[in-house]
């Protein structure tokens, strides 16, 4: 039963959301049950599968191991925060184009880890992509098309970066 809840102000996908949470509530529980953001998946709830990966201040983090009350003032980005009015984020588009999503359950976490990598280095090599995604388990694809998709997305992000002013920071469709 709910005991000792407190109001917690979380910035999720650029929006400030106030939620009443227990001290032990994980970010994953808050996203899925309180905010209705079910794109982040619960595959194990113990930090092994990576399906709940979100970005906290731009870095990949496991929502199932993060306590919501510790995240006030941080910038949380979920899979729902990537596509904008102009369409899919390049990583999402590449996953769709290359057949990198089969059952799709690992896909949101996989895309978030990939986005964090490509924001840092769109020219990441195949080995660097493998290392960056090593915390995200996929049971369908053998990772082949996922790695292809991430590299293709990186190439597109690089291209789009250089088409814009060179000083402008990288971004996808997110706010």
């Amino acid at each position: 039963m709910p005991v000792g809840k407190r109001i917690c102000a979380l910035r999720v996908n650029g929006e400030l959301r106030e939620v009443a949470v227990e001290g032990t509530a994980t970010l994953l529980e808050v996203l899925r049950y309180e905010l209705g953001l079910t794109g982040s998946k619960q595959g194990c709830d113990e930090g092994d599968c990576g399906a709940c990966t979100v970005l906290i201040d731009g870095r990949p983090a496991l929502a199932c191991l993060s306590l919501a009350v510790t995240l006030e003032g941080r910038e949380i980005t979920t899979i729902e925060g990537l596509a904008g009015p102009k369409g899919l984020h390049p990583v999402q588009d590449a996953f769709d184009e290359h057949g990198a999503a089969q059952c799709g359950f690992c896909t949101p976490g996989m895309i978030m880890s990939a986005k964090a990598l490509l924001d840092r280095d769109p020219e990441a090599t195949a080995d660097e992509v493998r290392t960056a995604l090593a915390g995200n388990l996929c049971r369908c694809t053998g990772y082949v098309k996922i790695i292809d998709a991430v590299r293709a997305a990186g190439a597109r992000m690089k291209r789009e970066q250089s088409e814009r002013s060179p000083r402008e920071p990288s971004s996808g469709g997110d706010a």
């Binding site: 079910t38 996953f95 769709d96 999503a101 949101p108």
Partner: peptide, 15 residues
């Protein structure tokens, strides 16, 4: 592309 691809890459697919 798969008919359900966009739902899966955007997190919209409802399992």
């Amino acid at each position: 592309r798969r008919v359900d691809g966009i739902a899966k890459v955007t997190g919209a697919a409802q399992y």
